[in-house]
Simulated scan of single mutants.
Amino acid sequence: MPRGPRYRAAVLALVAVLTGAGVSTESGIPDYRGPAGLWRRDPEAEKLVTYSYYMADPEIRRRSWLMRRESPVWSAEPNAAHRALVDFERSGHPLRVITQNVDGLHQVAGLPDRKVLELHGTTRYVACTACGARGPMAAALERVAAGEADPPCLECGGVLKSATVMFGQALDDQVLARAVAITRACEVFLAVGTSLQVQPAASLAEIAARAGARLVIVNAEPTPYDSLADDVVREPIGRALPALLADLRR
């Protein structure tokens, strides 16, 4: 871990953390794009979270709802990485978490909603594709369990989906703008458990580096932005992230 004067000067300045699927794998939530990820094992499964297939095919929607019911998200617990971020935030250090994950575990661990920016939305809510109405995922899954294979929106009868950004959908412009603003304002940018291959989220690493932030990448596999990083860490995230944050608190 770099320990020069510039790094030390960042201790009380804003720390931004971009988290990806690798942060949640230790909680039992699979990495979809990794070497053993779901998409590599079952390419057809990607259709279940692809907007065009989902909207066009009721059978895809039925399978998607079954997948949501059986998701490991509902039994997952925050791990050491999630808890370390909460401890860091509660110690009084300025922190913003920008996450590619949709599992909500940062908030379950105790981070305030205002400190977490969910780039790809959340699986804990549903949204209507017609009128935009939102509601808790738990209520929609109760309807599935009661026999509704493809529960429609209760407000307008439109197609419901998880409140996530599916493949084929664009990120919310306002959410992305906030992520870029946080990235440009931070002194330290940690990219943790992300392959940095999915755009536009991946470009935040370069934005941080070009803006003068200290860039640290924590990921098991090489990323396209490793050459820009001040430090690259290959250790397990549950051990590496708490150590990095502890170093920033000294």
Results as ranks from 00 to 15, higher is better:
Ile182Gln: 04
Leu119Met: 12
Thr164Tyr: 03
Gln169Tyr: 03
Arg69Gln: 15
Leu18Asp: 01
Thr223Cys: 05
Trp65Ala: 05
Arg8Gln: 15
Arg214Gln: 13
Arg6Met: 13
Pro58Trp: 07
Ile98Thr: 09
Ala185Arg: 06
Thr123Phe: 06
Asn101Gly: 03
Pro242Glu: 10
Arg249Cys: 14
Phe167Val: 08
Cys128His: 03
Pro136Asn: 13
Leu244Ser: 01
Thr19Leu: 06
Gly132Arg: 00
His120Asn: 02
Val144Phe: 09
Leu119Tyr: 05
Gln199Cys: 09
Cys156Ala: 09
Tyr125Trp: 10
Tyr54Trp: 08
Asp42Met: 15
Arg62Trp: 04
Glu89Asp: 14
Leu244Phe: 08
Gly22Arg: 03
Asp173Leu: 14
Arg178Gly: 07
Val102Asn: 03
Pro43Val: 12
Ala220Trp: 02
Ala185Pro: 03
Arg33Thr: 11
Asp230Ile: 10
Ile98Trp: 05
Pro30Asp: 05
Val233Tyr: 00
Met1Asp: 13
Glu46Pro: 00
Glu155Thr: 15
Ser64Thr: 14
Leu14Phe: 11
Pro224Cys: 10
Cys186Tyr: 04
Pro112His: 04
Val216Arg: 01
Met1Lys: 10
Leu95Tyr: 04
Met137His: 02
Gln100Asn: 00
Gly20Gln: 02
Ala163Ser: 15
Ala191Tyr: 01
Ala145Gln: 12
Val144Ile: 07
Leu215Ile: 00
Leu190Val: 05
Ala243Asn: 06
Thr99Ile: 10
Phe167His: 12
Arg96Met: 14
Glu118Ala: 10
Met166Pro: 11
Asn219Cys: 10
Ser203Asn: 07
Arg96Asp: 07
Ser75Phe: 05
Leu66His: 06
Ala127Lys: 15
Leu176His: 14
Tyr7Ile: 14
Leu228Trp: 02
Asp87Phe: 04
Leu245Arg: 02
Gly104Met: 09
Arg214Asn: 01
Val86Glu: 04
Arg96Gly: 04
Glu89Ala: 15
Val73Phe: 12
Val233Glu: 04
Lys115Tyr: 11
Leu160Asn: 04
Trp39Ala: 06
Ala140Ser: 12
Gly37Phe: 09
Arg33Met: 09
Ala202Tyr: 02
Arg124Gln: 07
Pro224Glu: 07
Arg239Ala: 09
Ile60Cys: 06
Ala202Arg: 01
Glu155Pro: 08
Gln197Ala: 11
Glu26Gln: 14
Leu111Asp: 00
Leu66Ala: 13
Pro72Glu: 10
Val175Phe: 08
Gly135Cys: 08
Glu59Pro: 05
Ser227Asp: 14
Pro152Asp: 07
Arg61Tyr: 06
Gly92Pro: 07
Met1Leu: 11
Arg6Asp: 15
Asp57Arg: 08
Asp150Ile: 13
Gly37Leu: 03
Ile60Trp: 01
Val165Tyr: 02
Cys156Val: 08
Ala243Asp: 11
Ser27Glu: 03
Gly158His: 08
Met1Ser: 13
Val180His: 02
Arg239Phe: 11
Ala16Met: 10
Ala16Tyr: 03
Val192Ile: 13
Thr129Lys: 13
Gly147Ser: 09
Met166Asp: 13
Leu215Asp: 00
Met137Ile: 07
His120Cys: 01
Val159Glu: 05
Pro2Asp: 10
Val198Arg: 00
Ala191Cys: 04
Thr50Asp: 05
Val15Ala: 10
Gly238Asp: 02
Asp57Val: 08
Pro222Asp: 06
Val11Ile: 15
Ile182Cys: 06
Lys115Met: 15
Arg62Cys: 11
